[in-house]
Amino acid sequence: MQSVSTENRLAGLTRALRKLATSLVVIATTLFGLLVITFVVGRMVPTDPVISLIGPEADQQTYERVYRMLGLDQPLYVQFFTYLRDVLSLNLGQSFITKNAVTTDLARVIPATLELSTLAILIGGGLGIPLGIIAAVRKGSWIDQVARVVGLVGYSMPIFWLGTLVILVFYAWLQWIPGGGRIDIYNEGIVSGPTQSLLIDSIIAGEWEVFWSALHHLITPALILGYASMAYLSRMSRAFMLEQLNQEYVLTARAKGLPGRTVVWGHAFRNIRVQLLTIVTLAYCGLLEGTVLIETVFGWPGLGQYLTSSLLYADMNPVLGSVLVIGLISIIANLLSDVVYRFVDPRTR
């Protein structure tokens, strides 16, 4: 009995490791594809990297020297391998606007975006999933209608427009919310903690004033961003749940005499966790795209704003670096959901 279970566990571990190896290969391939795309895009845009660097006033000699220095005289595949080597050694070039290494800039803007998008997905999932499930259980009731309207509005209203509207009403007219930025000016630079998330760091440091100020700034863009994913998540979880409620095992659970709450959350919900995980991951990746818009509207100093402002000045290194990072975050999110769903669904073990 004991030895059997140990053996089983060992076999399970081997299987898990093999699956992990497979996912790593998949990630490496995806990442390589991503690098090819960023490289090609980088070469195809009609901006001259040399002029970006030295400016239009420089003479021909300087131009040619820098041209060779950047390796642009090399054949394309050599350039690609140089690019590959640079990326792998975390050298993403320099931004000519900020004059910083792109990696330095990214290290500053990524935490701001992650903070925003994580709070947004927590709002979107935390409200959207229960709303969808309740709508499914009480199909046709008033709460189902409310969920339908919420979903429809969320689907059809662009977030940059909603964001602008909210700023107009709540900032300009009612003055309930602060304007752009992550934090009020007089609270800036007080905390700088290990996580680079102002919320978490200020809690760690016990700086409650900073915490409230940061939350105050964060909550509106997070709500708007979260609302978009809430619309999607509630519609999807409603559909998933309706499908489960028609299954035989739900009838069994009711025949067992379990109260409705247990039937829904204890039985049916367990069966949609994998699907939910998948769509939450998708929603999170979609949300990263949304940050590009919402960060611009709210002046949020994150990845999206960095990307757009660099793009407007044709500052290609930051643009490519940001795209790479967004791709990487998506890949990591997918990997995580892959790992988690093995724990959630016994059939995949």
């Binding site: 035989e248 095992y249 659970a253 039985h267 367990r270 966790r273 059939r347």
Partner: peptide, 23 residues
């Protein structure tokens, strides 16, 4: 709810579908 399961039990046709797959 105190009758179902407690005083009247029900057996369905196909255990493949009538048992909860993830429990």
């Amino acid at each position: 709810q105190s009758v179902r399961g407690r005083r009247i039990g029900m057996i369905l046709q196909d255990p493949k579908y009538s048992l909860n797959p993830v429990m």
